Simulated scan of single mutants.
Amino acid sequence: MEARDLLGKLRKKIDAIDFEILKLVNQRMEHTLRTRKLKANIADPGREQEIMAGIRRRSNALVGPDFSEHLFKVIINESKLLQQKELKLIGFQGEHGAYGEVAIRIVDQSLLPIPCLEFVDVFDEVVNGQLDFGIVPVENSLEGAVTQVNDLLVEADVQNIKIVGEVKIPIHHCLLALPGTDYREIKVVYSHPQALAQCRGFLSGNKLDSMPYYDTAGAAMMLSKEKPRAAAAIASKLCAELYNLEVLFENIEDNETNATRFLLISNKESNKAGNKCSIVFSTEHKAGALFNILKIFSDAGLNLTRIESRPMRNDPGKYAFLLDFLGSNREQKVVETFEKVKKETAIFKFLGCYSEL
């Protein structure tokens, strides 16, 4: 191999390492912003001394303790500056680049996206105050209801969880690959099973094998980090930007009407007037019970936009219903409707009044 080729190869490795360093620094900043919610003061000299002692102890070989301490002092000072800004944190399920983060960018680009492992983690961290907001998918135009999220809404303590907004986004899948990849060499494509199913026509037409992965963005991150041979990922276009990947093909989904509705949740009720309400209720197990509830809404002239039933996990054999309708809890007819519904239900929970963002 000629010296120029070897130099180019080494520089690519250095570029990849620099990219990973930046991602890790960003991840560290996210965690420091979360700790701000849990402590009284930004400065913590004892903690900083503990960090520096550990850094000096672990510094060896080419990276000496003086350089390491200087580097981390810069990082810590920057993290304290970020904490002073009191940024609003919003959690989403999945890795960076997930469609939840795409939705966040549409809602408000000033919100700082924080990845969470599971949907329940989004709810829990909104409740305990680590996150100012959470964003969760509640239904998809092709796949239907997101059962995990609906179950969490059914079980939510309405004193700590309120819906404060919604956004509906189109889901456009992209085929992503490592920079410089020859498309003709790709044999296998990684992604979430739903994304693979939604791109079945594209995959079949191009004779590409599907490889299920836990998350669309996770597949993109794995591709960037592990660099498997002859592989690509199906994920959002945002993932190409975040993981230094190339977009080979856009909009490869079989159905162009694919869209997901996301709910914005908070531990405080919105102080803005909304035009849609969400409730959870259960009825007595007797004939006509659900009909009687729906008739109350019909008689009030309230337009229902969704009704979903979910089994009550803490009470086998019984069901709870999630219901959305157009209207505001500041309207007298809605207030009166709620009072009538409460008299006919075994459980009634008001999840919030909100608008589309």
Rank of each mutant, 00 (worst) to 15 (best):
K237M: 10
D215Y: 06
K286P: 04
K237Y: 05
L223C: 03
A231N: 05
E226V: 14
A235R: 12
A273M: 09
S224E: 00
N267A: 01
G165M: 03
K168R: 13
Y183T: 01
K187F: 01
K225P: 00
D215S: 15
G274L: 09
E284H: 11
I293K: 02
P212C: 12
A197K: 14
V280D: 01
Y243I: 02
M222P: 03
S191N: 08
D182N: 15
R200V: 09
M221H: 13
S278F: 10
R261H: 08
N251D: 15
S224P: 04
F202K: 08
K168F: 02
S282C: 07
R200H: 13
C277V: 15
K268Q: 15
V188Q: 15
T181N: 12
G180V: 00
D182L: 09
I293Y: 09
E185M: 07
V189F: 06
A259E: 15
T305E: 10
Q194A: 14
A233P: 09
E250D: 03
S191P: 07
A287G: 08
M221V: 04
P228H: 04
S282H: 03
D254S: 13
I293L: 10
P212R: 04
Q194R: 14
N292F: 07
A197F: 08
Y213P: 02
G201V: 13
K276H: 11
N258M: 08
L304P: 04
C239V: 06
I265V: 09
C277Q: 06
G205Y: 07
I234L: 14
E241I: 10
